[in-house]
Amino acid sequence: MKPSLFGYRAPKTLDEAITMLASDADAAVLAGGQSLLPAMNFRLANPSLLIDIQHVEGLRGISVEKDRIVVRAMVRHREFELDPAVRAANPLIHEVMQHVAHVPIRNRGTVVGSLCHADPSAEMPLLLTLLGGSVIAQGPQGRREIGAEEFFTSFLSTARRQDEIIVEARFPTPRAGAGAAFDEVTRRHGDYALAAVGCVLTLDAQDKAATIQLAASGIADKPLRLKGAEALLKGSALATGDLDAAVKASLPLVTQSDEANASVSFRRRALGALIRRMVVKAAERARSGSPQ
């Protein structure tokens, strides 16, 4: 469990970092190192060069804007979790962050690093997908914005090109009056989710779902918006029958194969329970006027 030989650079500017990245096809960006370094210790990843971006100017800090929160590349999980402005703008984030690993790992791991790592069971990719967010990639060809659903392509894979650095992620803020909820099923506290579900919804005057966003992770090779369920629930009273139908429409999305900790049928059961519970909880929160 020792890595093989690798080079290390710590550039100060984004341009430098991008040039380094573009000049070596086996180079890797190092952010918090919480996923990359274990993989290197197991020699599952053998990058020739690590480009440590922690000293790169302009990659720190969170901006809470009018209808979105912008998280730059070197923002640690823990900053995102504890930032009071973030919490005020979108309390769901704090709730979700409790499920990401453990405090020491959140102290080092970055939000953007987690998005780039693209573990299909991780919370940050689910959150970005649920909220319909995006990332900003910057490479030798310039800057581009990539929407969440386009960004996550498969297991540990994204639409980021090898020579691009993700400089920030944008998490849209739910509209006023929305209720939100998130929960997941894990074997142990802080583990990656076997199934996780997030829900954001608004209710109309008749207590029916005016808008609804529903997403899940841990069930397929990437986080998924549960579009069939969203369509069924939108405009409904969120009654048991509506929820039954929404669950039924979502179960086929479980494509993760049987594995030691979770069979497909268990994942379906857990997904169903989570959908029901998160929709009900988000609706209660919308009704009570406190988003959480």
């Binding site: 099923v185 900790n261 979770a262 069979s263 049928s265 268990f266 059961r269 857990a270």
Partner: peptide, 11 residues
């Protein structure tokens, strides 16, 4: 005793 065993039993 895993969640999968419980799930299978319930099924």
């Amino acid at each position: 005793l895993t969640p999968t065993m419980i799930s299978d039993a319930l099924e």
